[in-house]
Design a protein around this nucleic acid. Structure first.
Length: 324
DNA sequence: AAGAACCCCAACCGCACGAAC
DNA sequence: TGTTCGTGCGGTTGGGGTTCT
């Protein structure tokens, strides 16, 4: 970014600020500022943001530096369109926790709370508006739960099947799978703060993408694939949230293969307590089969937003009018 | 072609909370 | 015990880019 519009405008927003503070810069970050911040953090680490800003020679508030680092410069920040799996996860977790963006972000590797919040406001709220109902209304929540999310699952299946067909081999042999279930999610609820794992940068290693607090974890790519035939998901007859008791597959997942030292080991997970997913998707051991970041699917930007395309909106509005 | 309307997202703000003093 | 500081969170804003008229 080489444009800077916040030209030493401190005096414009606060008459009471000190002379020193008047030199604080605001607005978009310049390339040199980014470089200075990254260099300093690479040598000294993060934290103590106010003093960090001074030590790094940045005329920025500590808050601004922290925000810039966490939301933009951090090496594991993943930008670009929200994937179908991420969309489904956001809908699911938001139905569970509401606007707890940072908490939701813990389950979306590389995504920031800010990005998820923006996604929700720009996409989800937009479609609530199109359906002429409040985003917090039961009507809209039911639409998400019983129409959008099953629709997303169908699209995930379709995309996975198409990807498998394109590369001429089974999905499971060419992808990393993310197994997500309510046990893993509930487990983080039962952890102490020190056990909750925040994203740890693992640049250039897409296989590490899922190691965040146990919500999503990469599984052996030789494991049984999620397909329309072998999985009982919301797309099946049991699509309205009825928990499925057979979660053996979920329990057997080797959590302790995680190499992160701070990662909560399997024997600390509170498997005994099951919090029911509002939709039931995660209780049914849904495997999210996603492609690697550098593969075909991930590169096809048109797929990401398919939830919101014209076809879907037509479908959803029809279903909405019929059912609600 | 140009202005208006809309979309997206980086950045900011105020507040809350815990730790240190 | 009260104050200050550092940090994190959710809500909001502003501006650049895109699409529409």
């Amino acid at each position: 970014m080489d444009i800077y519009h916040g030209e030493l405008d401190g005096a414009n927003y606060n008459d009471q600020i000190s002379e020193e503070e008047m030199e604080l810069r605001r607005g978009p970050w310049t390339f040199d500022e980014d470089r200075a911040l990254m260099n300093y953090i690479s040598q000294h680490g993060e934290g103590r943001w106010n003093s960090l800003a001074q030590s790094a020679g940045l005329k920025r508030t500590g808050k601004s530096c922290r925000l810039r680092w966490l939301n933009y410069l951090r090496p594991d920040v993943r930008r670009g369109n929200i994937t179908l799996e991420e969309q489904l996860l956001i809908l699911e977790l938001h139905s569970r926790w509401g606007n707890r963006w940072s908490k939701i972000a813990q389950y979306l590797p590389g995504r920031t709370d800010n990005e998820i919040k923006n996604y929700w406001r720009t996409r989800v709220q937009k479609h609530a508006k199109q359906l002429k109902c409040d985003v917090n209304s039961k009507r809209f929540k039911d639409t998400m739960r019983y129409l959008w999310m099953p629709r997303l699952v169908e699209r995930i299946q379709a995309a996975a099947a198409a990807a498998g067909g394109r590369d001429g081999c089974g999905v499971s042999s060419t992808t990393t799978q993310y197994k997500l279930n309510s046990h893993n999610i509930s487990s983080i609820d039962n952890m102490g703060p020190s056990q909750k794992v925040l994203p740890v940068p693992q640049p250039n290693n897409s296989n590490m993408v899922g190691n965040y607090g146990g919500g999503i974890v990469p599984v052996n790519t030789n494991a049984t694939s999620y397909t329309a035939e072998n999985s009982s998901t919301a797309a099946s007859s049991d699509s309205f949230g009825t928990p499925v008791s057979d979660l053996t597959d979920c329990y057997n997942y080797p959590v302790n293969q995680n190499t992160n030292q701070d990662y909560c080991p399997a024997n600390q997970l509170a498997y005994g307590e099951t919090l029911t997913s509002p939709t039931g998707y995660f209780n049914q051991g849904l495997d999210f089969t996603v492609m690697e970041q550098n593969n075909q699917w991930m590169d096809e930007g048109n797929i990401y937003d398919n939830l919101w395309d014209v076809d879907d909106m037509f479908f959803l509005q029809q279903q909405f009018n019929t059912n609600f």
